[in-house]
Design a protein around this nucleic acid. Structure first.
Lengths: 211, 211
DNA sequence: CAATGTTTGTGAATATTGTTACAAGGTTTT
DNA sequence: AAAACCTTGTAACAATATTCACAAACATTG
């Protein structure tokens, strides 16, 4: 299925292309060149072509890519036809923001459950989802066939939550806690560290001044 | 100040090391080897040494790194002695979660202002910060000497907001909107695209099944 | 329909990032 | 204080990722 190994950065960019191509089809633009698509996504034309090249030949020399075809090809490549069930652990500000975020549905991601250890939060309702005790997680994760877990708890508790999710059968984790989690080989983990992102910006600012 | 160009990924990892080293000093551990530090951060020992090597020689052959010294060196390198003022644009769920996030203060980041276009939200108070009209942004950004802007508005409005921030003098943008923004060369932009992160995970899941 | 202009797809060249290997320097043991 | 042991720092190497460059394919023009 993957003739040559595709870099993760390519996958990430494919989503960007798809987003743009969807916008183009909405605007009834039927054709786009790699150069234009690159311009719209702040990437080079070759980057666009090379990325797409991993998956076949969608373009037409002399005119470019048909946006409708490219859209459906990208959707197929990226598994947009599939739907995954997601659980959010941690019903603090961030967790609740995620529960309320409307974008997930459009991307084949169904938030099916939310968990917290705080008894005061348990059984409260956020956006049609009842917050459940973390102790119920193993059962609910299996019952509802959830395969993606989002960790939105404080750093201290994150490793424990990760362990519970993994032993409940979760295969992918999106981790918002600012710690390096240890998980078994087969579990895919992705860190989103907001402070770190901001701090990187502040490093950039600090060093800009020194020039 | 940068004898060799330092990869951004190195900078990002330095924050991870710092986080770990702070924890170590709290635990009164005074010395750590690159191997141990690597283990704690899920990185290789050489990676650790190479990253630190960009900035000088902090280690002692035979014993490792002094955690206290490493901590203060990293803090200096990463500009943790400096403080930056931040503005959040968009007071929806995400924007409010950011306003409520206690972590920023600890990282030399002061959220000084929040803006929204929705008149219903203007002048409401979130965590001691009054939400102001986006029209006030240029004035406030200059008055309060704000250099980092966080965009937490819907995709459609993001480019307009970016333009306003840039012309108000913002130098760094953390963008949560799922669009590719265009900004002048001198402005540093960082995208945090939650759907994209999750989608990458879902791509991973989709392709796992096919093996 | 030939001539000119575009644009793709991809090998080859380059650049960047990460890993290996090991000499040099420091620590601990006996 | 010699011997055995650890750990750093880095040069050489390997792996990845990106950019260049151009032939081949198609489109457009006169």
């Amino acid at each position: 299925m993957n003739p040559k190994k595709v870099p993760e950065s390519t996958i990430s960019r494919l989503f960007v292309y798809l987003r743009e191509v969807i916008e183009l089809t909405r605007m009834s633009i039927n054709t786009i060149s790699s150069a234009e698509l690159g311009e719209r996504t702040n990437l080079s034309d070759t980057q666009v072509r090379k990325d797409l090249g991993y998956f076949g030949q969608f373009g037409v020399s002399g005119s470019g890519y048909n946006t409708h075809e490219l859209k459906s090809q990208l959707e197929k490549i990226l598994g947009k036809d599939k739907v995954w069930n997601v659980a959010v652990v941690g019903a603090g500000h961030l967790g609740r923001a995620l529960l309320a975020y409307p974008g997930f549905q459009n991307h084949g991601l169904n938030i099916m459950a939310a968990f917290d250890i705080d008894a005061k939060k348990v059984d409260k309702q956020v956006n049609d989802i009842a917050i459940k005790s973390l102790d119920d997680a193993p059962r609910v994760i299996k019952e509802k066939n959830i395969s993606i877990g989002i960790i939105a708890v404080p750093a201290k508790e994150a490793q424990d939550v990760a362990n519970r999710l993994v032993s409940a059968g979760i295969e992918c984790i999106l981790n918002f806690a600012p710690v390096s989690l240890t998980v078994p080989e087969h579990v895919k983990i992705k860190d989103v560290d907001l402070s770190r992102e901001l701090e990187t910006l502040s490093y950039f600012l600090a060093n800009k001044k020194n020039n």
